[in-house]
């Protein structure tokens, strides 16, 4: 993966081609697309009413992210600056069409559950944002690694919501009942408002962690 950094096209700028853990981890933790950057919120809230939907959406988005990142990065010295956004969108739309037909072929149930949200991956601003901010400036191998990290971060975030909503809302995990018959399911969690509330809860949790860390640092500095 590391030796295909477009030998045909000499890079215009001196590029830093080192791939380290940071290239991958940036998307997973520091700049998590959902919890930190708040990008691509529509699928995050819409399809996370069960764990399996969340996982499928995460994988589909990652595939598009990696494929479009690789192609954009491969063509980065050929795309005219004025038409770059349009070019990126066409590239993304192509891969989304492929993924859309692939899911339809693999599992029709899943396709029906996700509905229009697979095609709406095109309008996920995270993918366009990555193409513009990262893939158009870095080598193919580096973009792929970074896209994988971003995709992993997005999938983890979707799962964070999907698991909580499924467990509370239907009392199941991956369709397996967790509690006895006595469990009164918390229906609002799988309805639209639940999506807003669970994401707000996660953001509160991360903000609280951040604040506590800062407070501890302050105490440590004072001795």
């Amino acid at each position: 993966m590391s030796d295909n950094s477009s030998p045909v096209i000499p890079p215009l700028l001196e590029e830093d081609n080192t791939i380290d853990a940071e290239t991958f981890m940036e998307g997973v933790w520091k700049n998590n697309p959902v919890f930190v950057m708040l990008l691509g919120m529509c699928p995050v809230l819409a399809v996370t009413n069960s764990t399996i939907n969340a996982l499928a959406m995460g994988v589909a988005t990652t595939l598009v992210l990696v494929a479009s990142g690789a192609l954009v990065s491969f063509l980065r010295n050929h795309i005219q600056k004025q038409v770059r956004i349009a070019t990126y969108i066409v590239i993304i739309a192509t891969f989304v069409t492929i993924v859309d037909y692939a899911i339809q072929a693999i599992s029709l149930d899943l396709y029906n559950a996700l509905g229009a949200f697979i095609q709406l991956i095109v309008a996920n601003c995270m993918i366009l944002g990555r193409a513009e901010a990262y893939a158009s400036k870095n080598s193919v191998s580096k973009s792929v690694v970074n896209a994988l990290g971003m995709g992993a971060g997005f999938t983890i975030a979707l799962l964070c919501l999907g698991v909580v909503r499924e467990v509370l809302g239907s009392g199941t995990f991956l369709g397996i009942p967790l509690f006895g018959d006595q469990f009164q399911s918390w229906v609002v969690m799988i309805l639209p408002p639940g999506g807003f509330f669970v994401l707000a809860f996660w953001l509160l949790f991360f903000a609280w962690r951040e604040e506590r860390k800062e407070a501890q640092q302050l105490i440590a500095e004072k001795g």
């Binding site: 609002v188 408002p193 807003f196 509330f197 707000a200 953001l203 604040e211």
Partner: peptide, 22 residues
């Protein structure tokens, strides 16, 4: 509260609006 400033609070309001639209 300081931790709920910004996106978290907006989302909670969004949730309440969504609940009322139901």
């Amino acid at each position: 509260p300081s931790i709920s400033r910004g996106a978290a609070l907006s989302l909670m309001i969004g949730g309440l609006l969504s609940l009322s639209f139901m």
